[in-house]
Amino acid sequence: MLTKKVKRRVTFLSLLLLTFVISVFFILKSLTNNILYFKSPTDIKLSKEIRKNKKIRIGGMVKKNSLSINNEEIQFIVTDFKNEVIVIYSGTVPNLFLEGKGVVAEGVLKDKNFFVADRILAKHDEQYMPPELKGILNKDAK
């Protein structure tokens, strides 16, 4: 049923797709560091050298009860529940920037535990629910 031409096209297509998939896989693999939108505190701890004055992004959760705000700056701790980094920032924050929620901070590392941010982005999670329900859940948790 299948003619010779059809068979040839099938082979061509599968070979083309295979080479393309493999090459894309290796490209992505080698670019992993650039694809990652932010580094976690653990990534920073594991990195051998820190380049000061180079702009990077770090991300994780804002540690509960770590947020302190005074007139000039906001200080909080970004955690991935293994390691922590202290972040200092002055400026406005998005509405969804809250304790216990995700955050991405853009700025420079001063040392492995200290980060000066010049922009704060909020990273929210994948849960959506009405406010009443959240109230009930909170009560249960207490």
Partner: peptide, 19 residues
């Protein structure tokens, strides 16, 4: 990868949803 975009809420394969 680490992304700013949140993870998927609805997982078709597992049939679970966080919405």
């Amino acid at each position: 990868w680490n992304t700013l975009h949140q993870p998927q809420s609805i997982k078709f394969l597992e049939g679970t949803s966080t919405i």
